[in-house]
Simulated scan of single mutants.
Amino acid sequence: MTKPARPAPLPGLRVDKRHFNALDLSRLVASFAVLFWHYQHFFVPPVGYGFHVDREVLTPFYHPLRWLFDYGHVAVEYFWAVSGFVFAHVYLADSTAHRRFWIARVARLWPLHLLTLVLVAGLQGLYTHINGTAFIYHEQDWKHFLLSIPLAHYWGWQHNQSFNGPSWSLSTEILAYAAFWVLLPALRRAPLMVALPVAVVVLRLFFLGWPDEPVLTCIGYFFLGTSIYGAALRGWLTLPVLVAASVACVAAGWIAATRYHGEDATILAGTFAVFFATLAIDLADRGERLAIGRKLGDASYGIYLWHFPLQVALVLVIDATLGSRAIASQPAFLLFFLALAVAAGFASHRWIERPAQKAVLRLAGRWRAAA
């Protein structure tokens, strides 16, 4: 029995380019940047919040890789912007998107999220039993665990990051997904004219200091990514325009950093400088020479969610066997950790994420058929 053919894309809502390989590859690079930012966790002893790590003294390769160690966290904003663009590319032209959107999100995100959540809960329980306090993320209670299950643990009800801490960005992104799903009919009518005002208003509220700033930032970056896709649909994003936009963002970021000392504005400008440059590379890659980027980008989600459980496990082993974490200052250990996290990301995608995703979609199909 053959599967029914998927309906043809809605006209005028998908750009001619089928895959954005450089954009996919950039997701792997962004997840790699987060590893450098969180590497400092290895040097945090069993204490509460507020411990300062002297990265310049303790981390190997600090000076040549200073930007990654000090600013690797800004890759999260880049993830959000890319998500907005990719969601527009995937869902605007899909007439079945509104119906299948959430089951596709559940199948893609939740299996690995729930697995790493339970694993971190166990590892943190062991670490707390040994040291009397949790490792890095100290909100290890039933409230935060139950909020984490539906990825609602960073919607404003939390005391701080908890359990698999990096998943906080997924929690905020769920709300961006919800806004995208609600606005999907309007986005199809006028992608740019709907997405851009949403992004501008939400980011304006963020810069004004409204509560729940991470949620506002996420939604703002996400819909800026969506609005850029809307501009692409109008044929505005030619190679010269993308290069000029990237250079303009670099200049804006430099002015924001040096004249106004505005960190948030600098991150915003820098994020989209990289974003426009990556799109320019994709546009220039007419021969699909970067097709490998599709497969490499698939590992980014696993790298992002696995690296903290790996850190907790490694710290437990180091504390039990060596009694000192000085080994983390060795270049070989940094390379080992990076390689382990990347290997975990690729293995996770192949043997955990894809099979689980197919199983969830298969189960959902059976439920739909029964209904």
Results as ranks from 00 to 15, higher is better:
residue 71 Y to M: 13
residue 71 Y to A: 15
residue 72 G to C: 06
residue 72 G to D: 04
residue 73 H to W: 14
residue 73 H to S: 13
residue 73 H to G: 09
residue 74 V to G: 02
residue 74 V to P: 00
residue 75 A to N: 06
residue 75 A to P: 08
residue 76 V to A: 07
residue 76 V to K: 01
residue 77 E to L: 11
residue 78 Y to N: 02
residue 80 W to P: 00
residue 80 W to D: 11
residue 81 A to I: 04
residue 81 A to Y: 02
residue 81 A to T: 10
residue 81 A to Q: 02
residue 82 V to A: 05
residue 82 V to L: 12
residue 82 V to G: 10
residue 84 G to A: 06
residue 85 F to I: 12
residue 85 F to S: 09
residue 86 V to W: 11
residue 86 V to S: 10
residue 87 F to C: 14
residue 87 F to I: 12
residue 87 F to N: 15
residue 88 A to G: 15
residue 89 H to F: 11
residue 89 H to Y: 13
residue 89 H to E: 13
residue 90 V to A: 09
residue 90 V to D: 09
residue 90 V to T: 15
residue 91 Y to T: 11
residue 91 Y to R: 03
residue 92 L to M: 07
residue 92 L to V: 07
residue 92 L to T: 04
residue 92 L to F: 09
residue 93 A to F: 04
residue 94 D to Y: 05
residue 94 D to A: 08
residue 95 S to P: 12
residue 95 S to M: 12
residue 95 S to I: 15
residue 95 S to C: 13
residue 96 T to G: 14
residue 96 T to A: 13
residue 97 A to H: 01
residue 97 A to W: 01
residue 97 A to S: 11
residue 98 H to T: 14
residue 98 H to S: 14
residue 99 R to C: 12
residue 100 R to L: 12
residue 101 F to R: 03
residue 102 W to A: 08
residue 102 W to P: 05
residue 103 I to G: 03
residue 103 I to H: 03
residue 104 A to E: 15
residue 105 R to E: 07
residue 105 R to F: 10
residue 107 A to P: 04
residue 107 A to C: 10
residue 108 R to P: 12
residue 109 L to P: 01
residue 109 L to R: 01
residue 109 L to V: 12
residue 110 W to S: 01
residue 110 W to Y: 13
residue 111 P to W: 00
residue 111 P to H: 00
residue 111 P to Q: 04
residue 113 H to F: 08
residue 113 H to Y: 06
residue 113 H to E: 11
residue 114 L to C: 09
residue 115 L to K: 05
residue 115 L to W: 14
residue 116 T to D: 00
residue 116 T to F: 05
residue 117 L to Q: 00
residue 117 L to M: 08
residue 118 V to Q: 00
residue 118 V to T: 06
residue 118 V to Y: 01
residue 119 L to G: 03
residue 120 V to S: 04
residue 120 V to H: 00
residue 121 A to S: 14
residue 122 G to S: 07
residue 123 L to P: 03
residue 123 L to T: 04
residue 123 L to H: 03
residue 123 L to C: 10
residue 123 L to K: 00
residue 124 Q to S: 05
residue 124 Q to R: 03
residue 124 Q to F: 10
residue 125 G to V: 08
residue 126 L to I: 14
residue 126 L to E: 14
residue 126 L to T: 14
residue 127 Y to T: 02
residue 128 T to A: 14
residue 129 H to A: 15
residue 129 H to G: 14
residue 130 I to D: 12
residue 130 I to H: 09
residue 130 I to T: 14
residue 131 N to R: 06
residue 131 N to K: 09
residue 132 G to P: 01
residue 133 T to F: 02
residue 133 T to D: 02
residue 134 A to Y: 00
residue 135 F to I: 03
residue 135 F to G: 00
residue 135 F to S: 02
residue 135 F to R: 00
residue 137 Y to M: 06
residue 138 H to A: 04
residue 138 H to C: 10
residue 138 H to F: 03
residue 139 E to C: 07
residue 139 E to W: 07
residue 139 E to L: 10
residue 140 Q to F: 08
